[in-house]
Every structure is written in C-alpha cells, then in structure tokens.
Amino acid sequence: MSSAGFEDRAVGAVMGAFIGDALALGPHWYYDLDALHAEFGPWISDYSAPRPGRYHAGLPAGASTQAGWLLELTLRSLAECGGYDEADWCRRIDEDLFARISGEPHDGPGGYTSQSMREACRLRRQGLPWGQVGGYADNTEAAERVLALAVRYACDLPALADAVVRNTQLTQIDPTVGAMTLAYGALLALLLQGEPLDAQISGTLLARVRSGELPFHTVTAAGEAVAPRGPEAPRRAGQFASPDALLTAGTIARAARDPGVRIEPAWKASLVYGMPCAVYHQFPAVYYLAARHADDFESAVLHAVNGGGQNAARAMLTGALVGARVGFGAIPQRFVAGLERAGQRLAMAQQVARQALARG
C-alpha cells in the first residue's frame, strides 16, 4: 500500500460521502417515485435545491443534510484533536447542535434532525450524562458520521473498532445497529487498504475476527466447515453476538456480479432492499450499488440518489465506499466544484488521512 494511494483513497471516501449526501438534498425522502420523477425528471444527475414545503426547503443546491453537517463536525474534531477524543466530540454536539435545535424533527442544521439525535438531545436536557442518552433508533445516523473514524483508523482495526463502537453507542445502543455499523466501518477500512469489494471480502473480514482485531463472536475457525468439538469460548464484554453483519457485503457483492441476478436499472435496488431509513434496508442497497459500480463513482452515487426514499444515507454511504475504491482523483470535478465548503472539507480530509498514515 503506497502512501499516495492510501491518502487519495481516504480523501475519496470522505469527499465521496459529502458529495453523495449533498446530491440527495433536493430529492430527499420521496417515497412516491412518480412524484420524484415529476419534480426532478427521469434522471437526477447533479445537485438540486429542495422544492418549497419539502424536507430541507430553503437550502441551496450543493448544501448538506444534517448527516453531512455531523460528518463535518466529526472530521473537524479528528483533525483538531489528532484522533478520536470523545469528550471533545460530545462537547461539540452539545454546543454546536443541541444548543441550536428545538427537539422538533424539522429543525436544526441541514433542516431536519434524525430520531436518534432528537432522543439524545431530549435526555441531555433532562440532565443525563453522555453514555446514558443512547436510544434504539434503527437508522444509519451513526454510520454516517463514524465513517470519518473508519478513515482515521483504517490502518489499525482494533482502534477503529473501539472508536466506532464507543461513538455509535453515544446515540444508538441497539446491538444489531452497532454490529452493522461496525461492519460497514471495517469494510470501508479494508477498501482503503486496497482490498476489492468482491465475494471474498467477507472472508477477509472474518479473518480479522479470528485474529482478534474485530470484536465479533464466532464458533468456527478458519477452514472449518462445521463447529469445532469441545466447549465454546465465552463471549467477551463488548463483543457482538455473531459475525453475520460481516457476511452481508460479500454475499451481495457476489450477487452484483452474477449474470443470473440482475436489478435493472441499478437504482431499483432501493425497491428490492427497501427504501426506508433502517439499517437493514440501507446497508444491503449500499453494498449492492458499491459492488456493482465499484470503479464508477458517478454511476454508483447517482443510482443511489435516483432510488428515492432515504436516498441521502444511501448515496452518502455508497459514496464513501466507492470513493475509497477509486480515490479522490476519480471523482468528477463538477461534484467537487458544486459542493458547499468543498475546500475546507478537502483540507480536513487530507489532514485526517495523513494522521491515519502517521499514527496507524
């Protein structure tokens, strides 16, 4: 892995996430695809402003939803602290987000505050400390910000797992959400290390479980077709119940390359896997689009956007994976030019990428 190659991929992942989120700002949360096409045409290919009365109304084309805003907050904390500083991150959320929102859904930076953040804000205002305000919202809110942590610790999977799990649990404590969020972060790290997103990627992830780098419980050892004889090792504190969340990406990548399994056009992955916000709808569609368009950033994010529903999360998470695969240099310049605060975000992404290389 060359230093230049890693930095280009790391910056591509971060900027790809910002771009995917912003591309979906205007057409966000249209579950009626006929209405989506009536208002934005048969194919959305660039940034657009939200229509009056819709989510995020009043924001300009190229702006971010709150997911992009939170990713930037997390990236800035990493850049300024040199790594994940939980106290700094929590302080920024208290001062920069919770102090600015009313608790209503249609409020706050980006024009809408997610369920998990609203719940955490309400409990903070009741006097509960951080560490006791996480809730059971099953959206991808944590994944949308911890992808920056995955970039920062891409060269150190145990540190990645620790940071991602701890930050996720600040707002989302459901263990399935946690397992799927960490699986996404670990996958992103492997792509940054140069691994391909193919049918073998899950085996590579499981090898990291068996080496002790990722905190998932498994009863089989490498090369075993059945469970081993003898007593099962007890689960450790903080260990997820099974590694199944790591198996999804490889299976879906295999399907994306199987000529007998076709979703045409690719944006209809949202109809196959589901258009809503929950992790069990979002991650499978993200993995499909990222695997099918692994070397084509534009196609991947635009199919994510054109699928409707929670397309901001779908495009953001897809953009990070494919950005990690192709690198920043392969992202179309028009997407960078039209993105708000692109220069500042690019500088922070470069700084965090260099921290990852320098400190592991």
Rank of each mutant, 00 (worst) to 15 (best):
G5N: 04
A10F: 09
A10E: 11
G12Q: 13
A13E: 11
M15A: 10
A22C: 15
A22E: 15
L23W: 13
A24D: 06
A24I: 06
H28P: 03
L33H: 13
L33N: 12
H37A: 15
A38G: 08
E39H: 10
S45G: 15
Y47D: 02
Y47K: 02
A49D: 04
Y55I: 04
A63C: 03
S64F: 10
S64W: 12
G68R: 00
G68T: 00
L70S: 10
E72I: 03
E72G: 10
L75N: 07
L75R: 06
L78G: 10
L78Y: 12
G82P: 14
D85T: 08
A87Y: 10
A87M: 12
C90Y: 12
R91I: 11
R91M: 15
R92C: 14
I93R: 12
I93A: 14
E95N: 12
D96V: 12
R100M: 08
I101T: 10
I101M: 10
S102R: 09
G103R: 08
G103C: 11
T113H: 05
Q115M: 14
S116V: 14
E119G: 05
G127L: 08
P129K: 02
G131P: 06
V133F: 07
E141D: 15
E141N: 15
V146S: 09
V151F: 07
Y153A: 07
L157I: 01
A161R: 05
D162K: 14
D162H: 13
R166S: 15
L170Q: 14
T176F: 08
V177M: 07
V177A: 07
V177Q: 08
L182D: 06
L182W: 01
L187H: 04
L188R: 07
A189M: 01
L197K: 00
I201E: 01
G203V: 00
L205R: 02
V209D: 00
R210D: 02
E213L: 00
L214R: 03
H217V: 00
T220W: 02
A221V: 01
A222F: 03
A225L: 11
P228G: 06
R229L: 07
G230M: 05
R235F: 01
R236P: 03
R236D: 03
Q239A: 01
D244F: 10
D244W: 11
L247M: 14
T248E: 13
T251M: 14
R257A: 09
D258C: 05
P259W: 06
R262Y: 03
R262E: 11
W267F: 14
W267H: 13
S270E: 05
P276N: 15
V279L: 15
A290H: 03
H293R: 03
H303G: 02
V305T: 08
N311L: 02
M316H: 00
L317I: 01
R325V: 03
R325S: 13
R325C: 05
G327M: 05
G329A: 08
I331R: 05
F335I: 06
L339Q: 10
R341D: 13
A342D: 05
G343E: 15
L346P: 00
L346Q: 11
M348Q: 15
Q350R: 15
R354D: 09
A356R: 13
L357G: 02
L357T: 03
